[in-house]
Amino acid sequence: MWRRGMITRLIVLVVVGFVVIGPLVGTVIWSFAVKWYWPNPLPQELGLKYWANAFGKRSQVLGALGVSMAIALIVVAAALLVSIPAGYALARLNVPWKKAMLVLFLMPQAFPQLPVFITMSSIFYRLNIAGTVVGVTLAHLVVSLVYSVWITTATFKSVPAILEDAAVNLGCTRLKAFFTITLPLAIPGLIASAIFVFLNSLDEFTGTFFIGSPYVRTLPVLMYTASMGYNMQAASVIAVMLTIPSLVFMAVLEKFLKAEYIHGLGV
């Protein structure tokens, strides 16, 4: 009986392994392939040539990485800045029309985002911020609000309100109690929210494609251009670069892994 079970497990593992890992392995191999002609199952020549190119002096990749990182960090800062007060109020205070507000913050996830980006690009064009880093940052920010507002709200709900009330009873001001008690206790959740926002911005393609083109080239846009031009090695190098942070952060964040949040990554 146990042998039949083992064989079934082995078959399941091989099938799932091939299906799930296969496409990724292909991309990783391509990133190290210097020469790879059909019908060889493995590249004729392996090497770090395209990785060296990506980090070389005349590379567009480093520039794009810088732009991507800068946008992502600004988006994280802005998202936290508006989400901490909003999340606190939605979690603790009796805000009027609370339900309607939470629905509004979820809407970008409940409907396709593409039409909004298309219209946003025409609005930004009139405002002269289409094709600029400012425009792209704003586009990333609006999509990030879903994660940051919902995660910070959940975080502040999980911090017992009674701790802050106790401090206030003993003569502490509400503001001081927030900064010395509630905020430090909420830090893990806020870091999780920051990481989700960071990854979402780093991987964002559609909004950048419409609002940033042709001047703002982030890593995903560069990868798309390379892949469409059948520059498989260059595209695969960027694909691997973009995947590593997600895998690392998500391994760290296992505890906060709520499926709805990660789902929208990199649309």
């Binding site: 991309t27 991987d203 798309y224 895998l247 990660i262 990554l265």
Partner: peptide
């Protein structure tokens, strides 16, 4: 879950 849509597209293309 952790692979962005764009990279899924490229990987499947390859």
């Amino acid at each position: 879950l952790f692979i962005p849509f764009l990279i899924v597209g490229h990987s499947m293309r390859v």
